[in-house]
Computed example of a mutant assay.
Amino acid sequence: MERRVSTCTLNIDDVKVYCEYILNGKPPIVLIHGFVSSTYTFNRIIPLLENHFSIIALDLPGFGRSEKSTKFVYSYENYAKLVAKCMNYFQLDDASIIGHSMGGQIALYTARLVPDKIKKLVLLGCSGYLKSANRLLIYTSYLPLFNTFVKRSVNNKSVKDSLRNVFYNHSYITDDHVKEFERPLKDKNFPKSLIRLLRHREGDLPTEELRKIHTPTLLIWGEDDTVVPLEVGQRLSEDLPNAELITYKETGHLVSEERPNEISNHILNYHFSGITAE
């Protein structure tokens, strides 16, 4: 069946932001990818959701097809403000947010920022309880050779090896995965945007802030996630006042690729009834 996805590039806060969207008058959901990723994270679940939702998926500044800005302040607070402005552009109210990994943490920041506009959260392998970079590392990032160091580190790491780290079943890794995850690495400003993220990222929300977020939240985790271990999901389910946790055996960090049908069913059931599918 032919996909009905449209694309555009928005200028938000002087940063070019790439979006994929399907506007069909149905309940809106916003998709936020994780670290060194893109909207491609959701390529297997969008076709399963597009008949039920209006969908907005964006590449965060610094990643995917969005601008690798050397001026944007890459804090979670600013990412959340950008998501909120993107929602305003598409005139979305009462939207649900699906966030993967770092995107899950940004979803939490967004729910804290504009709680009245967020209906529900679905967090996939959500980042949690990470501190900001220490001061020494931040100071070191201003040294002239630090950019060269980061650039070499990025270029020396195999994309396929990185993908093996986020998949439990390596047979799911395709050439398209390699191509899409490799795309931002080729931008000359990618290392600079990573450095700025290192400097500006204020850290994940602590327990006392999480307890203030009453948005209904579904946490979905791979039990074999080696990037964000299941213990993080279990802790989040305790700290978020209105959360429940679902786990999958033999599943890694990129749950949307390994369990697309199950996740889509959970999203549908959770969004429309608040009851997750067994």
Rank of each mutant, 00 (worst) to 15 (best):
T174C: 07
H170D: 06
R135L: 14
K157R: 15
V166K: 06
V178E: 12
L163D: 01
K157T: 14
V154W: 01
V178I: 15
I173S: 06
Y168W: 07
N156R: 13
L163E: 01
D175K: 13
N155E: 15
V150T: 07
K157E: 15
K157Y: 11
K151W: 00
L143N: 02
N155R: 11
K151V: 01
A133Q: 13
S141A: 09
V154M: 08
F167R: 04
R152L: 15
R164H: 12
T174H: 05
N169H: 04
Y168G: 01
V159R: 03
K179Q: 09
S141Y: 08
N156P: 00
V150D: 07
K160G: 00
H170E: 10
L163Y: 03
N169P: 01
L143F: 15
Y139D: 11
L137Q: 08
S171H: 10
D161K: 15
D161W: 10
K179L: 10
I173P: 04
V154R: 02
V166S: 04
N169K: 06
A133V: 03
H177Q: 04
V159W: 00
N165Y: 13
T140W: 14
S153N: 10
V178G: 01
K157A: 13
L137C: 02
L145M: 09
F146C: 01
I173M: 05
L143K: 06
P144Y: 03
V178S: 03
I173H: 06
F149E: 05
T148F: 12
F146A: 02
A133P: 03
K157F: 10
